[in-house]
């Protein structure tokens, strides 16, 4: 047993972290929220060059995957930097197409791997009737029952609590695939989506904690740094605690998916609810400890705070995840 990321995986995380640090992701997220997708698409291309999307695409379709552990590592960094776009949906769509392995797979998977195709995925039975960012996507796949269709268009954008998440109902479109294979492939794809969302939440929570720790060290009240107060320290200690114990669940779930283990659904659900709740609590703590300035739109912190709650609920609400853990 060596239940630790290896040096290559850690280096992958570090290189994504530095690339994204240098990329002004807050500006891309703000533009994305305003409906300007160009900076986000440029970022998308750089992520593709770094191999992020290829992790969800098999070698026969020009990818490197499927590599769930590396995918979890990558999405932790995407969450840490609040990268906008249907990142989760694109890799979940790749997992779906890979399992179907038909003409659509041949058409789309190489495009996903190279970053040329941004794909959104909507599975109403998995919780939400909305597709994320369909207006910026090259394709929107919708799964209903045992049918996958490619939506022709999408309804008007429904503003989200996180403005960088642009939600709309996919409309119309032609059938891409149908049959029992779709059901099995969708179950797998939603697990990949939940895993990637859990990883995003973990990274988001870590970023919120880091920023808040920096802030309470420099913010002075009553003549001392507020980070010296026990009430502040203990909240941050609890934030770290929740994130630290979410991480092994995430990595174990990724391993279960990599092995195709029968218990992967329960493991992914455990990771999803734990990371989602930890990031949500981290957002509450970040807001509270920043005080009024944290409650402003202009501080970049808002980009992270507003994402925490939607990620907690996307691709498996806490209640659905808890039920799944006990269903096994």
């Amino acid at each position: 047993m060596r239940f630790l990321l290896d040096e290559e995986q850690r280096e992958f995380a570090r290189s994504l972290d530095s690339m994204l640090t240098a990329s002004d992701t807050p500006a891309a997220a703000r533009a994305w929220a305003a409906g300007e997708s160009a900076p986000g698409r440029a970022l998308w291309s750089r992520l593709a060059e770094a191999g992020v999307f290829a992790l969800a695409v098999p070698e026969r379709h020009d990818g490197l995957g499927p590599l769930p552990v590396e995918l979890a590592v990558a999405f932790t960094e995407l969450g840490r930097h609040a990268v906008p776009g249907p990142l989760v949906e694109t890799v979940a769509a790749a997992a779906l197409l890979d399992r179907l392995d038909d003409a659509a797979a041949t058409a789309w998977l190489p495009q996903i791997a190279s970053g040329k195709a941004v794909v959104s995925l909507c599975v109403p039975a998995a919780g939400s009737p909305y597709a994320l960012d369909p207006d910026a996507a090259d394709a929107v796949l919708v799964v209903e029952g045992d049918t996958v269709r490619r939506a022709e268009t999408a309804g008007p954008v429904q503003p989200s609590a996180d403005p960088a998440r642009r939600l709309a109902r996919p409309l119309g479109g032609a059938v891409l695939a149908q049959g029992p294979a779709v059901t099995a492939a969708t179950a797998h794809a939603t697990e990949v989506a939940a895993l990637a969302t859990a990883a995003q939440s973990l990274g988001l929570g870590r970023a919120l904690l880091d920023r808040t720790v920096r802030y309470v060290k420099q913010r002075t009240q009553f003549g001392v740094a507020i980070g010296s107060f026990q009430a502040v320290k203990h909240r941050l200690a609890d934030t770290l605690l929740a994130l630290e114990f979410a991480e092994p669940l995430l990595h174990s779930a990724a391993l279960a998916l990599a092995e195709g283990a029968g218990h992967s659904a329960a493991e992914v659900a455990a990771a999803k609810v734990t990371a989602g709740e930890a990031a949500h609590a981290a957002a509450r703590t970040a807001l509270q400890l920043h005080g009024a300035v944290g409650y402003t739109e202009e501080l970049d912190l808002a980009l992270w705070i507003r994402k925490a709650r939607p990620l907690r609920d996307a691709w498996g609400t806490p209640a659905a995840c808890r039920a799944r853990v006990l269903a096994s």
């Binding site: 010296s228 320290k233 605690l241």
Partner: peptide, 11 residues
């Protein structure tokens, strides 16, 4: 946890 892992000042 706060002082040694997060580096917050002693109070």
């Amino acid at each position: 946890i706060a002082e040694r892992l997060l580096g917050l000042p002693k109070g």
